[in-house]
Structure formats: C-alpha cells, structure tokens
C-alpha cells in the first residue's frame, strides 16, 4: 500500500514534469551562462536564487535539464519497454501455448539472441541504426524482448497444463479464445511485473548509451548525459553527478515497486 503510493507519487511527479516541462522548467535547459557556472544547489552556501539544483560547468540550470531529461527517460521507458513487452510476450504466449514447432522455432531464436552480450549488442545496434531517440528505443526493444519471451513462455506452458484449459475445450472455446480469455489473464500479473522492471531497465540502458555518447545528441538534456558530464566535475560540482543519479535510482526503484504494488492491487486472486 505505502510502496504503491510512494512509487506512484514519484512517477506521477515525473510524468507531470515531462508533460509540462516548457512551463515548469525555470530556465532554458540549453542556455549557457559562463558567469553562472557551477552554482551550488540552494541548500549550500553561495547559491543563486532561482537555480534550485545549481548549475553545471557551462552554467546550465540542473533542475531544468532534469525536467527535460525526464521527458526522454519516460518516452524511452514506455516505448522501449512496451515494444519489448509486446514482441516478447506475444512470442512467449504462442510458443508456450501451442508448443510443437512454434515452440521450437521461438526457443531457438531466444537461444541465439541471448548468446549476444547485451551491452555490446546495444552499442552495435545503435552504431548501425545511427544515434537518436528512435534508434535507442528500437535497440532496447530488439535486445530485451527475450526477457519477456522466456518468462512468459514458461509461465504459459505451466498454465496450459492446468485443468481450466481442458475445461475451456469442454465448454467449446476455440484455441485462440482459450489463450486470450483463459490463459492470458493468468499470465498478466507476471507480465505486469516484468514490464515495470523493463521500464526501469530501459531508463538505465538509455542512460548508459547517453553516457557513452551513443544516445541522442549530446546537447539535449538526458540523465545519462548529465551523469557523464557530472563525472568530470565531481570535485568541483558533485551535485551535477548526484542529482541525476538519485533521480535514476528513484525512478528504477519506483517502476518495479509500482508494478509489484499494482499487481497485488488488481489481481483478484491476491485480493
């Protein structure tokens, strides 16, 4: 209960910040002012009013960059996580339910996919697809669908052996109808948890790609890019590093906690 509200609260703040970024960001996230470089956050001496989280080495407002960075983090989380979930769980459901050659083909593809080291795979993909938000999203979906496919396939297989699937045949449900109306609702809680984890993973992967300068253009504010930049300033302006790291941590944690909490809340079997 508490975790649902806490994690949901943080995610709600992020969503609002992302949507209303132009209105709530106190400054232009790209505006540089060399007279205002490395200003500390308001709770440290020497802060300048209006720069709540301080500024970076180019004098850009950290809070404004965080707010615009939330946009990119959330877009990546939802689109990359959603695409990976859609591809992975569709294949996992079909393989687990129909078995036979469907299962053999999907299983083989998963094995091949998983033999690539994921970070290398991501860097390679982005190098091929070119940098930019859409290739980051595509790369994450292309790599991470196997997480869904593996788990959902195993879960679907276990569910398909239950008598309620035999009972669905007896009452005259079609095969596909049985998969959709009987098996899917029982796989959904697992899917929800996986999806919430994947959204957190997507945010981290985007940050890693930004960190190695393979995400979107380095001027655009992303949390990973800010962490990369903050690293070079750690002795003069630690807040430039700490603020995006804390936000990243809270966001990844909130996604997983929110997913777990929501599952407990909406699953009739757990109520």
């Amino acid at each position: 209960m508490v975790r649902l509200w806490l994690s949901g609260g943080w995610l709600a703040i992020l969503v609002l910040a992302a949507i209303f970024a132009p209105w709530i960001a106190p400054h232009d996230p790209l505006a540089q002012d060399l007279f205002l470089e490395r200003l500390p956050p308001v709770w440290i001496d020497g802060a300048e009013p209006g720069y709540y989280l301080g500024t970076d080495s180019l004098g850009r407002d950290v809070l404004s960059r965080m707010i615009y960075g939330a946009r990119i983090a959330l877009i990546v989380a939802v689109l990359a996580g959603g695409a990976a979930a859609l591809i992975g769980s569709t294949l996992g459901l079909l393989a687990g339910f129909y078995g036979g050659w469907t299962d053999r083909i999907v299983g083989r593809i998963i094995d091949i996919w998983m033999s690539f080291p994921p970070v290398l795979f991501a860097i390679l993909l982005v190098a091929v697809l070119g940098t930019g938000l859409h290739s980051v999203i595509l790369a994450i979906a292309i790599i991470d669908w196997t997480r869904f496919a593996r788990v959902i396939r195993a879960e679907t297989m276990a569910q398909s052996r239950m008598d309620y699937v035999a009972s669905a045949v007896v009452i005259g449900r079609s095969r596909l109808g049985t998969l959709a109306a009987e098996v899917l609702p029982n796989v959904l809680p697992t899917l929800l948890v996986l999806f919430s984890l994947e959204m957190g993973i997507a945010v981290i992967v985007e940050a890693i790609l930004s960190f190695v300068n393979l995400s979107i253009s380095s001027d655009d504010p992303t949390w990973g890019g800010m962490i990369a930049e903050g690293r070079t300033q750690i002795h003069f302006a630690p807040w430039v590093l700490v603020v995006p790291m804390v936000a990243l941590f809270l966001t990844v944690l909130s996604f997983s906690q929110f997913g777990e909490g929501l599952k407990d809340r909406i699953d009739p079997v757990l109520r």
Partner: peptide, 20 residues
Amino acid sequence: RRDLQMIFQDPMSSLNPRHS
C-alpha cells in the same frame, strides 16, 4: 460440445482462478 460436458475432480485447477 454443448452435449458433452464434464465436471472435473479438482475445481481449484479446473475453474479459472481469475474468472468470477
């Protein structure tokens, strides 16, 4: 199908736990 119905041994497994 309508004419060939079955009652199962274990209703915990034969009734879909997520259907009312």
